[in-house]
């Protein structure tokens, strides 16, 4: 089905943006599959523009202090914590 493959470097670039490491096999498989999938997305070019009336509304509430999770509960699922804080990797 695939007429062409996406450039594997492009797959690596997007994976980098999305912060997902991929092995070489995944890169080549995705490069092939993305060609088909993106080709189908391009059919959206045929869609006419309509005057959409968005039925969106801002929903506001008063900013009041309410009960919330205590610190121990909030930290319960963290792989590592230190002194009551989440422990994250170095920034750089």
């Amino acid at each position: 089905m695939s007429e062409r493959a996406v450039d594997p470097e492009e797959v690596r670039h997007v994976a980098d943006l999305a912060r997902v490491d991929l092995d070489d096999e995944e890169v080549s498989r995705f490069a092939e599959q993305f060609a088909d999938i993106l080709a189908s997305f391009e059919q959206l070019d045929e869609v006419r523009e309509v005057e959409a009336e968005p039925d969106l509304a801002n929903v506001m509430r008063a900013d009041e202090v309410e009960e919330s999770l205590d610190r121990a509960e909030a930290l319960r699922n963290a792989p590592e914590t230190e002194d009551g804080y989440f422990k994250g990797p170095r920034v750089s």
Partner: peptide, 8 residues
């Protein structure tokens, strides 16, 4: 490494 590497 840095946080980007850890997240990835």
């Amino acid at each position: 490494g840095n946080w980007n590497e850890s997240f990835a």
